[in-house]
């Protein structure tokens, strides 16, 4: 009875210190928002913002209708774009799969050496955007498709490598133990206990990356790495807005198509 009586008559969820802390937290958040708003508007020239609706209308009227006849000169760069994405993804897969097996805790052959090495390669590849890879490669290899393909491949290593090595680390160890118990060698255990388990994730990851790469390869042309982006850049430079509209529409359709394909394939796997 004593313990019951010792509770306060009025119950509150948090202690007063906790309530003060949460009030201060909200206050800090609001202050940060106000500060950011000031920073954002400081360098804005409001004269330009005020006539933004007119400017947008003006651009739209000059960009519409799209110049459909320009399409005949887009087929070839569009095909290049698809090739950059597909070949780049394939090359990326070839390079990423060994990295994933070297990086995964349970398959790394010499963990203290191969694991950090593979992880560094994966992180380096992931931390650099494919547009920057393309910039570097264009200055090394010169402009063209090859630079684009390599840029896509180099960026894909990190993405595929990371997701795949995480899948490898999550495999069911019971199957590994069973294959080991039959007297199988390390490579045989890999082939029979680990590969069947990670195959669905591997296919799903690869198709997903291909879908992303289609999107990324449409802009690689901006830095001279081939594909439809080069046409976009050229059209914008000569203020040929109807052509820009057509190119943007083509890119949109291509991306929708690749998303549709990747969704179909992934549903078939799972």
């Amino acid at each position: 009875m004593n313990t019951l009586n010792s509770y306060p008559a009025h119950w509150q969820r948090h202690s007063s210190a906790r309530r003060l802390a949460s009030f201060m937290g909200y206050l800090a958040l609001v202050s940060l928002f106000v500060y950011c708003w000031q920073l954002m508007t400081a360098d804005t020239m409001w004269v330009f913002v005020l006539d933004a609706p007119q400017a947008a209308q003006d651009l739209a009227s000059r960009a519409w209708p799209p110049r459909w006849s320009y399409m005949e000169r887009l087929w070839s760069p569009l095909w290049d774009t698809l090739n950059i994405a597909t070949l780049g993804t394939l090359l990326g897969i070839v390079l990423a799969v060994p990295m994933a097996f070297l990086a995964a805790r349970n398959t790394s052959p010499i963990p203290w050496l191969t694991r950090p090495l593979a992880l560094v390669i994966i992180v380096a590849s992931r931390s650099i955007n494919s547009l920057i890879w393309a910039l570097l490669l264009v200055s090394i290899l010169g402009p063209g498709l090859l630079a684009g393909i390599l840029a896509i491949a180099l960026r894909s290593i990190g993405f595929i490598g990371k997701l795949l090595y995480e899948a490898i680390e999550e495999v069911d160890q019971k199957q590994v133990e069973a294959i080991r118990a039959t007297g199988a060698s390390g490579l045989q255990v890999l082939n029979y206990a680990i590969v069947p388990q990670v195959l669905p994730s591997f296919l799903s990851i690869s198709v997903f990356r291909w879908d992303i790469n289609i999107r990324e390869s449409t802009i690689l042309g901006l830095v001279g790495a081939g594909g439809i982006g080069a046409q976009l850049m050229a059209s914008m430079n000569v203020l040929a807005w109807p052509q820009v509209t057509l190119i943007v529409l083509v890119i949109l359709l291509t991306v929708v198509f690749s998303e549709w394909v990747s969704a179909k394939v992934r549903r078939a796997i799972i």
Partner: peptide, 24 residues
């Protein structure tokens, strides 16, 4: 060895699972 949880490879067919006894 035979295990409590059977420890087959679920994604492979039965015949291949049995053949795994021969890999070594």
């Amino acid at each position: 060895m035979i295990f409590q949880q059977f420890n087959l490879v679920p994604r492979l067919d039965v015949l291949t699972n049995v053949l795994l006894g021969r890999v070594s």
